[in-house]
């Protein structure tokens, strides 16, 4: 079965991102396909490589990056939400004249249409948020 996942909260304040990670891992273990994970609202904060959590804590951003690499998962950060919150890739850096970018490996920035497309293409859309 083909799943779309929406994550609406950042990596540490709220459990949503960890719940989504655990759900995605379980779905992959069961042989399902993760068509896309779409990060919206403060969920875009899952996409910054500049996080440095304490060593004894889970590195949520890195967990997403590793999962994406291992299973070729499409991690999409909403551009409108990302611009508000300072999540920047090279393209956005150039377009908006910023002095840096911070997108984590495996993530890409794209439009809200990617969420709607996931809703259309997937058998199930599962939302994690606050």
């Amino acid at each position: 079965m083909k799943f779309g996942i929406q994550v609406n909260e950042g990596p540490y304040t709220h459990e949503a991102s960890v719940s989504a990670l655990n759900f995605v891992k379980a779905a992959l273990d069961a042989g399902h396909e993760i068509f896309r994970v779409f990060f919206y609202h403060d969920g875009v904060n899952n996409g910054t490589r500049l996080t440095t959590p304490p060593q004894d804590d889970i590195n949520i951003v890195q967990s997403w990056s590793e999962l994406a690499e291992k299973h070729n998962i499409d991690l999409v950060v909403c551009v409108a939400a990302a611009q508000r919150r300072g999540i920047v890739d090279e393209g956005e850096q150039e377009r908006n004249g910023k002095d840096a970018n911070n997108i984590a490996p495996g993530f890409r920035i794209s439009g809200l249409g990617q969420l709607i497309e996931a809703g259309i293409q997937c058998d199930r859309l599962v939302v994690f948020g606050d």
Binding site: K25, A26, A30, H32, L125, V126
Partner: peptide, 18 residues
Amino acid sequence: YKGFVELTVENDKVNAWL
């Protein structure tokens, strides 16, 4: 979590009450 995934498969859609 395995059961969570199964529940999403057994039902036709998921409605999150955030």
